[in-house]
């Protein structure tokens, strides 16, 4: 197996000697794991906040509507890198050490200094941006449910929040599945921005590897492997999104979902 693999690498143009040895793979794969952690934490937070904001934007209460619309429109229209810089550099100026002893918040804080960790600031910034996008996807999904269904649910005695909780959100979730999956693709791509605030995720690990003089600076080879590590899961996800978009009978191949939020 090993001989087969290095024989294959020898056939390729360029210098692939690094990738014949496991430790270099492991170095990159650890970075991949950090990327995946950031993506999962980000999408989790974004989904929770996104549902709240989507329901808030459709609320009958004017102030709730205005506040959640402001949130969504502002964060959706800001460059993600700006948000990441804002949270990351801003975290140094904000004093968060008082929150160090609170249960869930302390995951995000450094144990000794009580500052926001770089990884946490990347997660927070990604969640801020993506919750706004998710809220838009969900709002479109809820709006696509015909008014009669919601009116019917109100007339059988459900309150506004109940009709959202039991009727609109479950129905909408199925419709927005393709959009959400393609947003996950975007989110996973965007975790690469965390490399710019010195988090050792996939791209940063790649950069460390090709900048190390002792390894012979194999820039092209390392970046190709890194790009493939982003491409493979994303392409699989885009096939899933396409399948969800077309339903079980549709044509094969990736679809069009989420084109508007790249």
């Amino acid at each position: 197996m090993d001989a087969l693999w290095s024989g294959f690498l020898d056939l390729l143009p360029g210098d692939w000697t690094l990738f014949k040895e496991w430790p270099y793979w492991r170095f990159l794969l650890e970075g991949l794991w950090v990327s995946v952690q950031i993506a999962l934490a980000g999408i989790g937070l974004a989904l929770v906040v996104g549902i709240l904001m989507a329901v808030g934007r459709l609320s009958p209460i004017p102030i709730v509507r205005v506040l959640s619309t402001t949130y969504v429109e502002t964060f959706r229209a800001t460059p993600l890198l700006l948000l990441i810089f804002f949270v990351f550099f801003g975290a140094g100026r904000a004093n968060t050490s008082g929150a160090k002893d609170f249960p869930i918040i302390d995951w995000f804080l450094d144990d000794t200094s009580g500052d926001l960790t770089p990884k946490a600031s990347a997660i927070l910034a990604l969640a801020l941006y993506n919750s706004a996008v998710v809220a838009e996807i969900m709002r479109a999904g809820i709006l696509s449910i015909s008014k009669g269904v919601l009116e019917a649910s109100r007339t059988i005695g459900l309150t506004y929040l109940q009709s959202m909780r039991f009727i609109a959100v479950p129905m909408a979730l199925r419709r927005m599945a393709p959009g959400l999956v393609s947003q996950l693709i975007t989110l996973y791509k965007d975790t690469s921005l965390a490399a710019l605030i010195a988090i050792e995720e996939l791209l940063r690990r790649g950069k460390i590897m090709y900048e190390a003089p002792s390894l012979g600076n194999p820039t092209i080879e390392v970046l190709t492997v890194v790009a493939l590590m982003y491409f493979i899961p994303n392409y699989a996800l885009s096939l899933v999104a396409g399948r969800l978009e077309r339903g079980p009978e549709g044509r094969r191949g990736p679809g069009n979902a989420g084109l508007e939020n790249l």
Binding site: I185, K189, L203, I220, L223, V226, A227, Y230, F231, L262
Partner: peptide, 19 residues
């Protein structure tokens, strides 16, 4: 389309500039 949509822009920029 699939290649450029499914890899991060930052990786593509690094590729153009450094590789």
């Amino acid at each position: 389309v699939e290649w450029f949509r499914n890899t991060p822009l930052l990786v593509q920029l690094f590729f153009l500039f450094f590789a």
